[in-house]
């Protein structure tokens, strides 16, 4: 890979000034996407600002109505956290299905959210659960955060500090993995929240999106049968050697039904 500077600040202000020092500097979380891109010379930052030395960015807090996960918390820590397993098991299961064990040992939630890979899992959870993305500048609602392929509402130099997940009544995630990369060819997160049923789809298009048609069908009646016969448009859906657009459109329906069945089977209502 090309050369760059590496800094590991101990505080958030130090990290912000390091990022501000160069427009080509980039924040580093677990590096599970960034380091491979550097190796393939697909990215060429002037400096990497490693956020993992900042204590307050790591860790999981549980409040009465929310789970707050620090940006540099690893997927493995989320997957194994007793309170998340108890209060929001769908999120623990999602985190436990990302990549492989070594990716989960290193990869961080903040890194995934800031990167907004179109086939990443977490964005579906954030969007379906109506999470908020807490940053060095304030807070973003998930609905406004994921703006396009690898694009977010983050301003240059803005650092994700934590993700706040309101605890839903019920939730489930179903993913159809790429047989090769294990990223989501399609992933569907269904959540029954205080504000109604929210359904987010990842992997299928250039950016995670909410599936209003499914939401309204499930709003009528929360049952897999409510989704029978729904047809999803192939417009804007990804097509690659593993899944063409009609297959992805089909999988959205299958996975949504399965997520609903799973959600109902767990019988957990908060």
């Amino acid at each position: 890979m090309r050369t760059f500077d590496y800094v590991r600040p101990a505080t958030l202000p130090e990290a912000l000034s390091a990022l501000a020092a160069s427009p080509e500097a980039r924040a580093l979380g677990g590096g599970m996407s960034l380091v491979p891109a550097l190796k393939l010379r697909l990215a060429a930052p002037s400096a990497l600002v490693d956020l993992r030395g900042i204590p307050e960015l790591r860790g999981i807090r549980i409040t009465d109505d929310a789970i707050v996960i620090g940006a540099t918390t690893t997927h493995a820590d989320v997957a194994a956290h007793p309170a998340i397993l108890d209060r929001l098991p769908a999120l623990a299961a999602l985190a436990g299905g990302i990549g492989d064990p070594q990716v989960r040992n290193c990869g961080t939630i903040g890194g995934v959210v800031a990167n907004n890979d179109p086939s990443a899992d977490y964005p579906a959870a954030l969007l379906a659960l109506g999470a908020s993305i807490e940053t060095s500048r304030g807070s973003h609602a998930a609905d406004d955060f994921f703006t396009g392929m690898f694009e977010t509402a983050l301003a240059p130099g803005e650092i994700v500090t934590a993700i706040r997940f309101p605890i839903p009544k019920q939730a489930a995630y179903e993913k159809f993995k790429s047989p090769a990369s294990r990223y989501a060819l399609v992933g569907v997160f269904v959540a029954v929240t205080a504000g109604g049923v929210r359904v987010a789809v990842t992997g299928a298009a250039s950016c995670v999106f909410r599936a209003e048609m499914i939401e309204s069908a499930l709003g009528e009646r929360l049952a897999p049968e409510s989704l029978e016969g729904l047809r999803f448009s192939t417009d804007g859906l990804n097509a690659d050697m593993h899944a063409d657009a009609p297959f992805r459109a089909h999988l959205i329906g299958v996975l949504a039904r399965r997520a609903v069945s799973k959600l109902l089977a767990t019988g957990k209502v908060n």
Binding site: P179, A180, S181, D240, M241, H242
Partner: peptide, 23 residues
């Protein structure tokens, strides 16, 4: 699982890494 796939017109290898070639 395994499939070595070229783009039929450009001759670019589509399955050029383990991200797409399913070992």
């Amino acid at each position: 699982f395994e499939d070595c796939v070229y783009d039929e017109s450009s001759g670019q290898l589509l399955s050029g890494s383990f991200m797409d070639y399913c070992l």
